[in-house]
C-alpha cells in the first residue's frame, strides 16, 4: 500500500506540472490584457510601455519559467484587474465555492441514490417512469435557464428565498461560512440545487443501471433462493456493490462541480472562485486565470488519488492486480 501511495503521489506531481504548463499556454491565447488596463483613449506609446512592463514581450518559454519559479514559492503574482495578490483572492473565495460544492454533492447523493434504487427495484413501475421523465427534463434544460427559472419562482413570485449572494456569513478564522446562519442556508438552497441537478440525475441513472444488472446476477438469485429478505438483498448486497462506480463518478465529479460552479456562481452572484475566474477571463487577467486553473488541477488530482485509494479498499480484487 505504501509503494502504491508513493507512486500515486509522484504521478500527481507530474500532473500538476502538466496542468501548470497547459494553463499557462491557455491563458496566453485568451486575450490581450493591455486593452482592458489602459484608458479608453490611451496612445500607442502608452500601450507599448505597459505591454513591456508586464513582460508580455518576452518569449513564452521565458514567461513560463518565470511564472513557475514564482509559483513554486507560493507567489501567484498580482491580479491585473484589481492589483491584489492572487493567492489572497483565491483563499478569500475558496469557502464560498467549497461550501456550495459540498452541499450540492450531499444533495445529489441523498436524492440520487434512493431514486436510483427505487427505479431499479421496479424499473417499469409508474413511479420509476415518472422520476426518470422528470429527471430527464431537468437535465435537458441548460443550467443557466434552470437557475433563472428557480429565481423567478422562489425569489420573485413566492419571495421565499434570496435571488443572489451568500446571505450572512460568519468568520471562523480566515474561513467565512454560511452554515451557521439561517440566511446563509436560505441563500445556499437555490444555487446548490441548480448545481446538483445534473449530478443527481447521473447518480440516479448509474445506481439504477448497476442495480438492475446486479439484481439479475447469479449470486443475487442464489440469495433469493436462500430466502434472504428482499430488503437485505436490495440494500445490503445489491446497493453495496452498485456503489463502487457511483463513488468513482461522484469523486471525479467534485472537481467537475468546482469547475461547473462557474455558471451557477455567475447566475446567482455567488462570490466564489468561479465568479472570480469568469471575470478574469473577461478582463484577460492572466495571473488569476492561471492560479485558478492550478488550484482546480490540484483539487482534482487530490480527489482522484483519493478515489483510487478508496477503490482499492472497497473492492479487494483490485488491490493486487489493478493497484499499479
Amino acid at each position: 500500500m505504501a509503494r502504491f501511495l508513493i507512486k500515486r503521489l509522484g504521478q500527481a506531481v507530474l500532473v500538476i506540472l502538466a496542468v501548470g504548463l497547459l494553463s499557462f499556454l491557455m491563458v496566453r491565447t485568451v486575450g490581450d490584457p493591455v486593452q482592458s488596463m489602459v484608458r479608453e483613449d490611451a496612445t500607442v506609446a502608452e500601450r507599448a510601455a505597459l505591454r513591456a512592463r508586464l513582460g508580455l514581450d518576452d518569449p513564452v518559454p521565458i514567461q513560463f519559467a518565470k511564472y513557475l519559479g514564482r509559483a513554486m514559492q507560493g507567489d501567484f503574482g498580482i491580479s491585473y484587474r484589481n492589483q491584489r495578490p492572487v493567492a489572497e483572492m483565491i483563499v478569500e473565495r475558496l469557502p464560498a465555492t467549497l461550501e456550495l460544492v459540498l452541499v450540492a454533492t450531499v444533495l445529489a447523493l441523498a436524492i440520487g441514490i434512493p431514486l436510483g434504487v427505487i427505479t431499479a427495484i421496479r424499473p417499469r413501475g409508474p413511479l420509476a417512469n415518472g422520476v426518470q421523465a422528470v429527471s430527464l427534463v431537468g437535465v435537458s434544460t441548460p443550467t443557466f435557464v434552470t437557475g433563472i427559472l428557480l429565481i423567478l419562482l422562489f425569489a420573485v413570485t413566492l419571495r421565499w428565498l434570496p435571488s443572489f449572494g451568500r446571505g450572512e456569513t460568519v468568520e471562523l478564522g480566515w474561513w467565512s461560512t454560511g452554515f451557521l446562519t439561517l440566511s446563509g442556508w436560505r441563500a445556499l438552497l437555490l444555487p446548490s440545487l441548480t448545481l446538483a441537478l445534473f449530478q443527481m440525475t447521473l447518480i440516479m441513472r448509474l445506481v439504477r443501471a448497476e442495480m438492475i444488472e446486479i439484481l439479475q446476477s447469479d449470486y443475487i438469485r442464489f440469495a433469493r433462493a436462500r430466502g434472504l429478505p428482499q430488503h437485505d438483498i436490495h440494500y445490503r448486497l445489491a446497493l453495496k456493490n452498485a456503489l463502487m462506480p457511483v463513488l468513482t463518478i461522484t469523486g471525479m465529479q467534485i472537481g467537475g462541480l468546482i469547475a461547473f460552479a462557474i455558471v451557477t456562481e455567475t447566475v446567482f452572484q455567488w462570490p466564489g472562485m468561479g465568479l472570480l475566474f469568469i471575470q478574469a477571463v473577461q478582463f484577460a487577467d492572466v495571473p488569476v486565470m492561471a492560479a485558478y486553473l492550478m488550484f482546480v488541477g490540484l483539487v482534482f488530482v487530490a480527489l482522484n488519488a483519493l478515489v483510487d485509494v478508496t477503490y482499492a479498499v472497497v473492492d479487494p480484487r483490485l488491490r493486487t492486480g489493478g493497484a499499479a
Partner: peptide, 9 residues
C-alpha cells in the same frame, strides 16, 4: 486527470 482538471470552457 490533466484533461479533467480543466473546465470545458
Amino acid at each position: 486527470d490533466v484533461i479533467l482538471s480543466f473546465p470545458t470552457i
